[in-house]
Design a protein around this nucleic acid. Structure first.
Lengths: 208, 208
DNA sequence: AATTAGATATACATACTGTATAATTAAATC
DNA sequence: GATTTAATTATACAGTATGTATATCTAATT
């Protein structure tokens, strides 16, 4: 006689904790693989991630659905670890829009610097998946939203969209990474970006 | 009886022409695939390239050695078509270094604009191949060499390397592409880049 | 003791890069 | 005209990748 599948209430604490630990181990392994060990690191494959995490490849699928799902989780993990969201209120709290923008650049530079080893490969991977899967694109656009708000605070102007696009390009990881060469210190890189951003804003403010 | 492999002189004109035509067809197919048909374009695989070109996948290998070899040839083909190299003498011919730099930015913008549909995918692909294979990296570095020379003409200064890195970032495709949004005209984008470059140079020149 | 979520084992389908070997075709040489 | 040659094709194979399907195992919970 076949027993009907009884829907028993089942809330496990220890199992959930173990699963979260597994999840964390996979995320850590993924980030380790993305940043690469300096010399010749293995390619970023789910097989390699699973091996590094000490689990089976199917466990990765069980936790993250797909490779893209894993990459999304990796990004969120990075943002969480570097307190990216928590730093934003301090930016908007500044009454002077120029000071706010400067603070914003500082926050972004801290984020880029924190993950400067991981982001290059991460970016390259996410670019090939249908020219950035929509979900990751949305995450990138958050920065543009913040910039739009900050530009509005500078006062109403016709070329606001133009300035936003320019600032978006000037504060991106590509810019930070491109300046982080020849062993240049992160603080110096930030000052370079601050100066470039300031100059760009000044051009628009003077034009009215 | 086995006949010795006689080394007969063999210079075919028509065969070479046919081969060149095949080569051109493959390059065209590759570029077509890279720029993608707007909506949902097939992935850039040698299989897809060969099919688009009307040849076998092995013919692609015969002509370009490997996927990387094909990508190198694609880049050279793009550079040749947009007369990138031919425009450089005109840059160096200008006696005023500021005018030369402006002309350089103009030349680069023309190149970026000419291939703005192709370069995003091309860049993404070349980034994953061992973090840019050496040969393609060398091609990218040519721009840096030119900028180094142009900066030197501005006069000797301590921070020359810093300015070069900044200008390299400000004149790259990422910058051009990031500003080419919302249907913004290429001429407007160029003027944005010109202004940003000018401001950066001015900062360094004033500091001495 | 029975149920359940998470993890594993095994297998399979599909797709891509790259290599190897023989066969085919048309042009050039003798 | 017979032979050699370069380019292409046909067929097969090895290796790796993503993703899916199904059954099994394990330990926590009811």
């Amino acid at each position: 006689m076949v027993v009907k599948p009884g829907k028993r209430a089942y809330r496990s604490v220890r199992r959930a904790e173990a699963a979260d630990e597994t999840r964390a181990r996979i995320l850590a392994a993924a980030r380790r693989l993305l940043r690469g060990g300096g010399e010749r690191s293995p390619a970023f494959s789910l097989e390699a991630v699973a091996q590094q995490a000490g689990v089976t490849r199917l466990t990765v699928y069980n936790q993250f659905e797909s490779k893209l799902g894993l990459l999304e989780a990796v990004f969120d993990d990075m943002a969480r670890e570097s307190r990216l969201m928590q730093d934003m209120p301090a930016v908007f709290a500044l009454p002077d829009p120029h000071a706010a923008l400067r603070q914003f650049v500082s926050v972004m530079c801290r984020f880029w610097d924190f993950h400067r080893r991981t982001l290059p490969r991460f970016d390259a991977l996410t670019r090939l998946d249908d020219e950035v899967a929509a979900s990751l694109k949305a995450r990138k656009e958050r920065r543009r939203v913040v910039l739009t708000t900050l530009v509005q605070r500078l006062g109403p102007r016709r070329d606001a969209a133009e300035l936003v696009d320019l600032l978006y390009a000037l504060t991106g990881f590509e810019m930070f990474d491109g300046l982080s060469v020849h062993g240049r210190d992160a603080a110096v890189v930030e000052e370079l970006m601050q100066a470039t951003v300031t100059a760009a804003v000044a051009r628009y403010v003077n034009d009215g």
